[in-house]
Design a protein around this nucleic acid. Structure first.
Length: 228
DNA sequence: AGTACTGTTGATTTTACATCA
DNA sequence: GATGATGTAAAATCAACAGTA
């Protein structure tokens, strides 16, 4: 491999002689000798890939091989390290920015879902409280119903429906307490919808909700209201 | 073609730290 | 252990040059 050799003036900063002032250097630079050749860069890069710092012995060897002053090799590695570091910082910044944007987006979606669920719960409560005294069963706030561990939302709603006099049986078409079948279907629909939301939330973007749903018996509505 | 601007890159300076005699 | 000389690295900066609008 044939590499350029700096002129005596260019070999200004070897290990033994002090570097000339910038003014002198400025006047004596020769075009095309300022930049290292492609082959020199190629070799320097390949070594930098495996080791970002050079041992003194290796530096001397490499300098001989490249036809450069050891000082030039040392400076090249210093600059390379500094510029690699700033690029790395830029890269890390972009990565963090993307992560943040992604999380912010998830947060917004979850917030909207929470609001939607809250609305559905309100509607459900309104329906459940429509005729609280007719069957001697006082209406209760859905938000105060205890949800046992492992109880999903549909079971919870079914219980409420039963207490309200709605039959949940597919085969039982009887309307026992004067509620229309349409009303019951609507409630069931909401229950299924809620269950669907609950299920989808469990694995929403890989989020684990186990820790968010209090298994100690606090109401589903409570965690929904307090979360976000 | 000449010019202004910008990015790249080799080199320098300053400062801090480690090692050694 | 304290001290000065020496070497090296990081960070900031300079300066020459190439590419581009």
């Amino acid at each position: 491999m044939e590499f350029l050799t700096p002129s005596p003036d260019e070999a200004k900063s070897d290990e033994t002689t002090p570097p000339p002032s910038k003014k002198i250097k400025k006047n004596k630079l020769i075009k095309n000798q300022r930049r290292f050749s492609d082959d020199q860069i190629k070799l320097l890069e390949s070594i930098f890939e495996s080791e970002t710092r050079l041992e003194p012995r290796k530096k001397l060897q490499l300098a001989r091989e490249l036809g450069l002053q050891p000082r030039q090799v040392a400076i090249w590695f210093q600059n390379r390290r500094a510029r690699w570091k700033s690029k790395q910082i830029e890269h890390d910044y972009r990565t963090l920015q993307a992560d943040y944007d992604n999380l912010a987006s998830r947060f917004e979606s979850l917030k909207q879902e929470k609001e939607s669920l809250h609305l559905q719960l309100q509607k459900l409560n309104e329906l459940l409280d429509k005729k609280p005294e007719e069957d001697g069963n006082p209406g209760r706030d859905i938000g105060t119903i205890k949800s046992e561990p492992g109880t999903n939302l549909s079971i919870f709603v079914e219980e409420a429906l039963e207490q309200k006099g709605f039959s949940n049986s597919q085969n039982d078409d009887r309307i026992e307490t004067g509620h229309s079948r349409e009303e019951g279907s609507k409630l069931q629909e909401i229950a299924e919808s809620l269950e669907g939301s609950e299920k989808s939330s469990e694995n929403w973007y890989g989020f684990e909700f186990n820790g968010l749903i209090d298994p100690s018996g606090s109401s589903s509505a409570h965690w929904l209201n307090s979360w976000v």
